[in-house]
């Protein structure tokens, strides 16, 4: 049990960095499609974090919703409008 939680905390450190960097990187992209994909990657990191925080069911939900459904909706919007951000 001890080694399990210590491996979780190592994972949590990585995930904090991944989430923060992913969020900032998503918002800095000029290409909106890439921004949507990066926000999906950030969602995967969040799903692993939920796993570490003892909520594996939420991790599964977040993995599906955050990587497929939400970016899907946003990508649909991008295809109906325009792909790059105008100045």
């Amino acid at each position: 049990m001890i080694e399990l939680s210590s491996s979780f905390i190592a994972m949590a450190y990585v995930m904090v960095v991944a989430i923060t960097v992913g969020a900032v990187a998503a918002l800095l992209q000029k290409d909106l499609l890439r921004a949507a994909f990066i926000s999906g990657a950030e969602s995967i990191a969040l799903a692993f974090f939920f796993q570490a925080l003892l909520a594996p069911d939420l991790g599964l939900t977040q993995a599906i919703v955050g990587t497929v459904l939400l970016p899907g909706i946003i990508i649909l919007g991008i295809f109906k409008t325009r792909r790059t951000e105008e100045d």
Binding site: A23, A35, S39, L46, F49, F50, L58, I74, I78
Partner: peptide
């Protein structure tokens, strides 16, 4: 679209706070 992506990040943050 960026504003909408920011909203998804915000709601992720609230989720993480609650968990």
């Amino acid at each position: 679209i960026k504003k909408i992506i920011s909203f998804t990040l915000l709601s992720d943050g609230v989720n993480l706070l609650l968990v």
